[in-house]
């Protein structure tokens, strides 16, 4: 019924890199040059996520700034042992932010995070 975590991980960058490599091998490097130039400034403005995957049909993105699910920020907190808690999971913690995000998706079902969430004092 749901995609498993193992089958879910393939980053957008990996997909792009593979596509470009294939294109270069096919001898169309010149044709791609404008595309590569066009990508550069956009990358500076919006750094690619460290990890991005589709999990149970939801987009998870983890980068230095935080965790997003379908583009919406997930409030992330830390426990003294270094593990992670989120606005969705306050009574359980996870070893990595990707595990934290997947657990949030499991709990959310088909619901979306709100864009503006209440914050702790």
């Amino acid at each position: 019924m749901y995609a498993t975590p193992a089958s879910a991980a393939l980053t957008r960058r990996t997909v792009l890199r593979t596509a470009f490599t294939a294109a270069v091998l096919a001898g169309t490097a010149a044709a791609l040059a404008p595309v590569l130039r066009a990508r550069r400034p956009r990358q500076t403005l919006t750094p690619a996520p460290l990890v991005e995957e589709t999990y149970r049909g939801r987009n998870i993105a983890v980068d230095h700034a935080g965790v997003r699910i379908d583009g919406r920020p997930l409030h992330v907190m830390r426990r003294a042992d270094g593990s992670y808690l989120s606005g969705i999971n306050h009574f359980q913690s996870f070893g990595t932010r990707l595990e934290l995000a997947r657990a949030a998706v499991d709990e959310l079902g088909t619901t979306q995070l709100a864009f503006a969430a209440p914050h702790h004092g």
Partner: peptide, 13 residues
């Protein structure tokens, strides 16, 4: 409900 959420402070803070 707001009170509970506000006073949840994780222990790394």
């Amino acid at each position: 409900v707001r009170t509970h959420d506000k006073y949840f402070v994780p222990d790394r803070d």
